[in-house]
Design a protein around this nucleic acid. Sequence first.
DNA 1: TAATACAATGCAAACGTTTGTATTATTAAA
DNA 2: TTTAATAATACAAACGTTTGCATTGTATTA
Lengths: 341, 341
Amino acid sequence: MKKRRVKLEDIARKLNISIATVSRALDKNPRVKPSTREKVFETANAMGYMPNQIAKSLSSGKTNIIGVIIPRYDEPFFIEVCRGIDHYAREHHYKILISSSRNSFEFERENLISYEKGLVDGIILSPTHETETFIHIQNIINKGIPVVLFDNIKQKVNGATHVIIEDDKASFSAVEFLVKKRKKTIAFIGGIKEKKVFQDRFKGYLKALKKHNIAVDDRLILHCSSLDREYEDAEIQNFFNRIPIQPDAVFACTDNYGLLAMKTLLNLGYKIPEDVSVIGFGDLGLGQIFVPSMTCIAQPSFEMGQKVAELLIDQLHEIDDVVPQKKVIKLDTKLVLRDST
Amino acid sequence: MKKRRVKLEDIARKLNISIATVSRALDKNPRVKPSTREKVFETANAMGYMPNQIAKSLSSGKTNIIGVIIPRYDEPFFIEVCRGIDHYAREHHYKILISSSRNSFEFERENLISYEKGLVDGIILSPTHETETFIHIQNIINKGIPVVLFDNIKQKVNGATHVIIEDDKASFSAVEFLVKKRKKTIAFIGGIKEKKVFQDRFKGYLKALKKHNIAVDDRLILHCSSLDREYEDAEIQNFFNRIPIQPDAVFACTDNYGLLAMKTLLNLGYKIPEDVSVIGFGDLGLGQIFVPSMTCIAQPSFEMGQKVAELLIDQLHEIDDVVPQKKVIKLDTKLVLRDST
DNA sequence: TAATACAATGCAAACGTTTGTATTATTAAA
DNA sequence: TTTAATAATACAAACGTTTGCATTGTATTA
């Protein structure tokens, strides 16, 4: 069934020249005579030659593959980042190997180890909420494999570049916006408490309330604990069904939470934005479709992907001896106003 | 900067044994004495040995990587399929290399060629709307690389396994459902005409109308031509803004079209489902969040991914001499009723 | 016409594994 | 003890490239 691949040797034999010459000819190396090169190209085509990437990689020590680890697929933010990575990477002749850590530290570690086997030239990683220790990442870096981290970074990792947004600032400004609209009972819907981004978004919420002398009311605060799409809905419905006071605004830490909140509130008979304003976080398209459309903090996801890829690829091309400056890159967010506020 | 990797040779030298023995010891090959094996494992650990996947692949001729080509990232259906693939693949020790053809035949071909260089053991592909000729796929198969196709297959490819749903049947039953609800002016929102799945879904629509003696009215039919999320919205808004008759139902060929239709209709003052019913296609979660929630044809995307991966991996494990039976697998859809009808 | 330069090509090692076969060491049987 | 059997290990080729260095061929100069 499986056909034997044509290799350099086959071309060499047919033309009665050496493998080295064939290799160089295909490389357009000026050391081989134009006429020879032509002949090589012709027979290579005729024979259907296709270089063996694996052999090339073994010889060169480069695979031109970037390993990407995200906590989950079913979060549009991560997919959008991947799209950004793919865009930049392809332009620079890299391919991407994506895997999901499924919100599990163990999976994240396993993935990292599998990448350590030399399959990838560098790694882009967004740590899970479970990730408390970073030695598994440090280990990889110590082996000389460049790593770029994005989103949800609990701890600065020495030698890695970080790309983040300022979650606390962003949520602070969103909540302050609500306060300035004279909202007094602002509900907060966050995600799992263990996740740094949610912690920071919560901090921003608290800070805005404090600044404007609004008392924090625990009954208005929900930290969703679901890791799956299916349970988030129930959790948020529960929350609003039982809430003892009527909120006049909701600040949600993701677009999805925001949409689910709007859905639940509408079903409970609230009018948006008359009775209650809602702000989401992310701005990944769905907020624009919902009726009413949702005000969001726009996070530059695609751009984040591009940036992350750019930084990694830059690092891959650095001269080995130059000890590179590792950086923390902060991308800007902005509040996009729509009908829900 | 870059540390030299520890290799078998280093372990061998340290223990004064041969590379072959080290290799076999790590493989737990019974040909090496238990005590030797122990020593090998110990020093391997102590030295931080990590096998070189590339070298392994070159030697074994297997990479344990599956190449996946999808037309676009920003279509939840494809991501859900990828998630299914990832799930099944990981369980069977395969990794996935994803790339997007960006709705372009040329990109699809390029990706395929890049995979042909021996990087992947097999390929999962969903052809673009531009893909008319299938020789690039046939070529790959002829080289002995297994290919499984899913969604949007215009032409049966010899030697490839196909996984599809019966788009015409599914849309027929959805439209018939509307007819039975006494809907007479049923609008159709499809995608680019060149895409087989949209052609089939349109056929189902026509067939249902015909069966129930409802005249086809071109003014009720929209074939969206946008390939980008951003333009779809405008196209659908335009359509409903200018529509000369009031539809009493809308059958949309994707969830996104359905949601955009609902949004536009609501903004135009229609009541859903009182004035107009809406059915979407896909059922990827968003329909449940929208208010009112959207009735959908549920397409088993995750399962499709799993199935596709299963079929490919089965093929990869087939004995080479056995000429395998290539199949066309049809997955079931069902109509999920919600508030929009 | 011999010496010299340089263009074109070839040889062989290297990349890090795996694995068939050969070799050596050890044990059991005669 | 020597022989036969078997267990343990070693050798070397193979996977398909790339590349530094050596070699051959050709043209230029004196």
